[in-house]
Design a protein around this nucleic acid. Structure first.
Lengths: 339, 339
DNA sequence: CAAATTTATGCAATCGCTTGCAAAAGATTT
DNA sequence: AAATCTTTTGCAAGCGATTGCATAAATTTG
């Protein structure tokens, strides 16, 4: 493994000159710089990561924090995509990424404590946003920079984040059904304490209000088939003329679809469905699911860019909104022109 | 940020003594060791990662390599679980994990080259196993240790790996149907060049052969609904008395189920289905899918354990087989006792 | 009780790189 | 041509840990 001394020797200069040359310092004359670069290339030199960080006291790795909750992971099959996005821009900038996980909240916090104490994390990216997150508390306490993916629950103006415009996405989804002639549209969700779900609902409501149409909401987790059937039965008694559903994510949409398709009476009615996330579920459904794509990889990329920018603590935070896009498949039907 | 000097000073000893004490060296007397440990705790001391690695020349981070192929990632929603498993045992052992990803094979290899050159990766874990993998070639070339998750395609005896016993899993799945009275069972797959699929098929064949029953195979990708319907139509013409399917993974099973359920004639026949991976799809299906669980987190854990063990290159490789387990749900039915 | 051992501690060099400062070389001015 | 100013380079001191070797303290032995 070649060191900077080897490079220096081969180029016939001192290590300090070599170092400066490698960093493209402009106080080094062009000829020597070239000599050094050439020597470095010949020796296949790469600066030792640890030595470099030790000397500069500026670490170059980004800590990516996964949420604790298992279920959360499963229901968001795109964590990996975010990670990939992060890693993509980090490696382009010569940074590393390292993961922080934990079985429990305590363990996660502990792991993060250690990472901070070891002092080689430049800053963190949280792949989730949660109310009263102890991790956030910890990072604030140690005054460590971080950026969250998703809308921060607190200190919104002080924390950097990247997110989709979920309200707008909700509006767009509802509008998509409205544009195809639907008038009675139901918003289906499972847990309003999640800000994503709340925001998408808000967006749906906005679209409906602008058309002077009623909000029709259904909360259901589809824990099992029977429960789903029962819930829908009650629902349709109250709202017999619903023709379309905006489901808060693809998984919900798929579950709804399963229930509707397994009932002969409901099946013939050909309800229209639109989901969110453009996940693997949307391709799996039959008919395939129209869905609002949110580009998790892009979210990761943007988060990484912010993370690499290194704001001093007193500077203003950055927020980036990643656009969404409706991916048209076959689950939404045009309503025969009524009126 | 406390350094070893701070600790030493507070404990009233020299840095070297402090260092030795922290490592539990037994040439340090108990009382001073206690003093040091106490001081360290009080100062919330953790050794600087970079300094430590630089001094010991022994790095402590594990590189986790994700496959290039996007599709592979999506269709295996448990990569994250493996990563979590890896990270879990690494952080318990005071190691870090860092990721290697790439949009293309070239980029991935390049990123790995850099990581190796920077010389701070202890060794690698590949989350996949692939024929003629350029990454493997690279690692071999630099003589870097690695362990793969999945069965290695080459140098099987020389490379450490952790995997399920997919052949046995295939046998168990088929046997599960056999035990419930099924006699004509079809094995459904999509791509035999993947060793997982081939192995599961082999296992299925073994079970069938032992009962002197014919192998019935169906290759189908269910790229769209119509294609699936057509394929099954042809299939049932040839094998009208099939009652059960062993699908090579849950996604295939779910797709098959969709097709079967949307045809009134097939639907009534109540085919039995079993899948693999116990993924989120198995809970999503209706009826819920019986599936062979493979415990990806465990795979990750075992891989990490091997990775942390640091074999000298000339030592024999290690292979760990993680057990599987059938998770019973509602997609398999008992056949009325015939015979 | 002095000498020889054993045990516990500290000094100082080292890992590979960066960087402030001083010295050397080159260019410019008078 | 000497003096001054720039531009380039090198010396040496860190960064925070570890570790071989020497020394100091404690213990045992003659």
């Amino acid at each position: 493994m070649a060191t900077i001394k080897d490079v220096a020797q081969r180029a016939g200069v001192s290590p300090s000159t070599a170092s400066r040359a490698m960093h493209g310092s402009k106080i080094i004359s062009k000829p020597t710089r070239d000599k050094v670069v050439k020597a470095a290339r010949e020796l296949n030199y790469a600066p030792d990561f640890n030595a470099q960080n030790l000397a500069t006291k500026a670490s170059n790795t980004i800590g990516v924090v996964l949420p604790v909750d298992h279920h959360e992971i499963f229901s968001n099959p795109f964590f990996l995509e975010m990670i990939r996005g992060i890693n993509e821009v980090c490696s382009k900038n010569g940074s590393m990424t390292t993961l922080a996980t934990g079985i429990s909240s305590d363990e996660l916090v502990h792991n993060i404590d250690v990472m901070i104490a070891q002092g080689h994390i430049r800053n963190f990216i949280l792949l989730y946003s949660e109310k009263n997150d102890p991790v956030v508390a910890r990072l604030n306490h140690f005054d460590v920079q971080y950026v969250v993916i998703g809308k921060p629950y607190q200190e919104v103006n002080k924390t950097s984040y990247v997110d989709n415009d979920n309200i707008q996405a909700g509006t767009d989804a509802a509008q998509y059904l409205l544009d195809r002639g639907h008038r009675r549209i139901c918003f289906l969700y499972s847990d309003l304490t999640k800000m994503v779900q709340g925001d998408r609902m808000l967006g749906y409501q906005r679209a409906m209000m602008q058309q002077n149409l009623p909000n029709i909401m259904l909360e259901e987790r589809f824990e099992n088939h029977a429960a789903g059937v029962a819930a829908l039965k009650t629902f349709f008694e109250q709202y017999p003329d619903v023709t379309g559903f905006v489901a808060v994510d693809d998984m919900m949409a798929l579950k709804l679809q399963q229930v509707l398709h397994n009932d002969p009476e409901w099946k013939v009615k050909q309800f229209s469905l639109i989901g969110f996330n453009n996940s693997i579920f949307s391709d799996l459904a039959h008919p395939t699911l129209t869905s609002v794509a949110v580009f998790p990889q892009r979210l990761g990329e943007e988060a990484a860019k912010i993370a690499m920018a290194d704001h001093p603590t007193d500077e203003l935070s950055t927020a980036v909104i990643v656009p969404h896009q409706i991916v048209k498949r076959h689950s939404v039907h045009q309503i025969k022109s009524l009126k």
